[in-house]
């Protein structure tokens, strides 16, 4: 219901809207101020053959890692529709982590080659939506890389925690 003057060109509607805080990082402060006490929730979407097994390896190896990530197992990163990540944000996830087999190692030979093109565009458009880049990551972790999984999760969760939980956003 914000009041703005009539725009002349169609494009002008996309310029700064009232309600957006001009001060950089204001949303971070607001979000952390609002509900800084809630642990961040992160959706991890991982392929069955590498990253899910890699997470398992990390568990079996008893590598300490934050418990904020809920994993969704899919057959292959090629199965991941960009909708999954957007849906997670819509449903209130504070961060989305996507991981699969290293290029060349795909169980189905080429699923992740297709996937990485999509993920790259997804990442760019998630930033375009105004979701800070710390909240979305896609990477490769193989079944044997328990330590790498630990590092990926630890770093990602730390990045999201720095921003705090996301509240009151449409997407």
């Amino acid at each position: 219901m914000a009041d703005t003057t009539t725009t002349e060109a169609g494009g002008a509607a996309f310029e700064a809207a009232p309600g957006g805080n001009a001060a950089a990082g204001a949303n971070v402060a607001a979000a952390t101020g609002d509900s800084g006490d809630r642990p961040v929730k992160i959706i991890g979407i991982v392929c069955n053959w590498c990253s899910y097994a890699g997470a398992d390896t990390a568990g079996v190896g008893r590598f300490r890692q934050p418990a904020n990530v809920r994993l969704v197992r899919v057959p292959c990163t090629g199965r991941i529709d960009p909708l999954f990540a957007l849906k997670a944000f819509e449903k209130g996830a504070d961060g989305v982590l996507i991981s699969g087999c290293h290029p060349g190692d795909c169980h189905y030979s080429e699923g992740n080659y297709y996937a990485r093109r999509k993920f790259e565009l997804l990442e760019r458009l998630i930033h375009h939506l105004g979701i800070p880049k710390e909240r979305f990551k896609w990477t490769w972790v193989s079944a044997s890389e328990g330590q790498r999984w630990q590092k990926v999760v630890t770093d990602f969760v730390a990045g999201v925690e720095k921003l705090g939980p996301r509240e009151g956003r449409a997407l």
């Binding site: 494009g11 996309f14 310029e15 809207a17 957006g20 805080n21 949303n27 105004g130």
Partner: peptide, 17 residues
């Protein structure tokens, strides 16, 4: 013009539009 907005402004703008 849109790209130059901050994350927060982008979200507010998209939500409004």
């Amino acid at each position: 013009g849109y790209e130059s907005l901050s994350d927060d402004e982008k979200q507010a703008t998209l939500e409004k539009v």
